[in-house]
């Protein structure tokens, strides 16, 4: 996994997970700094790198999501962390607000970021079946918001 790919995956994750520019920036920088320190100590293959990234993302998401306002930090415009090719984030916001955190994050890692189910399961210290079940339920809810 290249450095650019790592940066993009972490930045996208926090952008869509926190839905707040400032928090997304801080969480991204903190995660990448920690990831850099870890990768300097040991060499990992792709699966192990992805699982490490998942683990760090989870850690910092838990830390920063406490700062999200009760209103959800939603705004009508897009995220400034993304290029202004307009992407309708409405369904996504609704999905984030209505679904369980585990299912939401599972969809984000699996379908948005593109991590393998095995890496996600290893990073969360759970089974692949559990990850797929969460993704299935999450996508079902997201699909209902698409209507």
């Amino acid at each position: 996994m290249s450095n650019e790919a790592q940066i993009k995956s972490v930045a996208l994750f926090f952008s869509f997970a926190l839905m707040d520019d400032q928090l997304a920036r801080q969480a991204t920088l903190a995660t990448l700094y920690r990831l850099k320190k870890k990768l300097e100590k040991e060499k990992l293959n792709d699966i192990e790198t992805q699982s490490l990234i998942v683990e760090l993302m989870m850690k910092f998401w838990l830390r920063y999501q406490k700062y999200i306002p009760k209103s959800g930090g939603m705004y009508s415009g897009g995220l400034n962390t993304l290029k202004n090719d307009y992407t309708d984030l409405g369904p996504w916001r609704e999905f984030k607000r209505m679904t369980d955190d585990n299912e939401f994050l599972a969809v984000l890692w699996s379908q948005v970021i593109g991590f393998s189910d095995e890496a996600i399961a290893k990073g969360l210290n759970t089974t692949i079946g559990t990850v797929r079940h969460r993704v299935s339920r999450g996508l079902r809810l997201l699909g209902e918001r698409m209507i």
Binding site: K8, L12, P91, L142
Partner: peptide, 11 residues
Amino acid sequence: YSKELGHAELD
């Protein structure tokens, strides 16, 4: 839809 979100470019 999720795949499209994943294709978003960073600023």
